[in-house]
Structure formats: structure tokens, C-alpha cells
Amino acid sequence: MSGFFSVLWRYRLFIVQLVRIQLLLRYRRTALGFVWTLVSPVMTMAVSAFVFSHLLRFPMQQFVVYVFSGMLPWLLLSNSVTIGGATILNNENLLRKVALPIHAFPIAGAIGVLVDNMFALVALFAIALVMGAPITSALLVLPLSYLVVFLFVAACSLFFAVVFVFFRDMQHITGVALQALMYATPIFYPLEALPEHVRPWFQLNPMYYLIRLFREPIHEGRVPELKTWIGCLLIAGVMAVIAGVFYSVLRKRIMFRL
């Protein structure tokens, strides 16, 4: 356990380089550079806001902010699983030649996704303000929201990176599963829009709770209650323990499966 983190600390410069490269390679030689991080979620948001506000007859302006506040933590999760989850396989040549801490790769992947997400937050927020997002002191709680959700997504990144080594097919299945989970998470609709008897099922989804840490300060302008924080921290902690145990059990076998 302490070895897990002390190795990360020892290889911090390596992790910084991996994060830099992940960001550089994404934006290099695209005319709009990192603007693309913003454009694609904005377009997703615009399309879904248009469709859902007509479908569900919500006031459009409020709805954009509502979707935006749910999309941020969602993108954090889905990118961590797809980008972070691919890191061990993508670096198999390097891993086969140099003894490097394997978990540094998915953790660096998740950090890269986090940095990306924070860029998106800043720029999307400008748009959200125009659309009428409330500026309140509740927004100051967002760094803490990021911290809790990051713990969860970094654990997911590590977990799936190991899963993908042993079951390569899972990469394809996971893409579909993520899409299903996205629609099962109240990002584009409020949970109250669903029939009452199905709601408990949707509440089994950990993302249902985690997106509140963003939605309440951004959309509703209030700091989430203490019990929301504790619940989310518990979810993230459980996921971290699962990923950590999973990794430490399989760590020695990973090299033989690359």
C-alpha cells in the first residue's frame, strides 16, 4: 500500500512527462489546438440540450447549465476508462524493456484527463455564464468535488487498464457499456422525470451520486450536504480499494500477458 504511493512519488517526473505527452499529442497540429476539448462537449451539450429540452419541455437556458454540470464529471469518468484504461497496452513495448512501475501509466492517464477536464471547465463556464449559470460562493467547493471524483476515476483507470490486459475484448464492450451508463445517469434529464418505480434502480449507479458534487454547486448554486460528500467519498474509497487490491493481486502477472 505505502509502496504503491511511494513508487508514484519516486517516479513523479516520469508521470509529469507522461501527462505532458498525453496532452501534447492530443492537441498538436490541430488548428484549434486545445479548443477541441471544448468544442466537442459543447456540441454534444448543444445537441442534447436542444433535443431533450424539446422532448421534456424544460426551459432551454437552464437546461444547458444542467447538462453541462453533469457532463463534466461524466467526461472525467468515460475518458479515464477509455484513455487511462488503454495506457498499459499502449506502452507494452516500453514496459517489456525497462522496469517501470506499471500503475504509473493509468494514474498518469487519469491525471491527463483531469487536466483536460479542468481546461474544459474554465472555457465551458464562460458559455454557461452567458446561458445564465448562477455565480455563487458555492462554486468554491469545486476543487473538492474534483478531488473526490478524481479518486474514483483514477481507480477506474487503474482497474480497467489491468482488465484490458487480461481480457482485451473488454475494450470494445466497455465502450458500449459506458454509453449505456451515460444514458442511465441523469445527465440529460432529472431523475424525477422517470416513473417512480424505476428510480431506485437508477440510484444504484455510483455516478448518480458523484455528479451531484458538480451539479449542486454549478446548477443549483449550493454546497452539497455533508451526507452527499460522505456518500461520494465512500463510493470513491470503495472503488480505490477494489482497484488497488485487484492490481496488487495481478501485478506480477501483467508482464507475462503483454
Binding site: 519516486r10 517516479y11 517526473l13 516520469f14 509529469v16 512527462q17 505532458r20 505527452i21 525497462v98 517501470l100
Partner: peptide, 11 residues
Amino acid sequence: ENLYLHGAIYG
């Protein structure tokens, strides 16, 4: 940039 990564690989 490659050399920075390379150096970091070697710790």
C-alpha cells in the same frame, strides 16, 4: 520533448 521523457524513464 523526447529527451525529457527518456530521462524520466531512467528516473
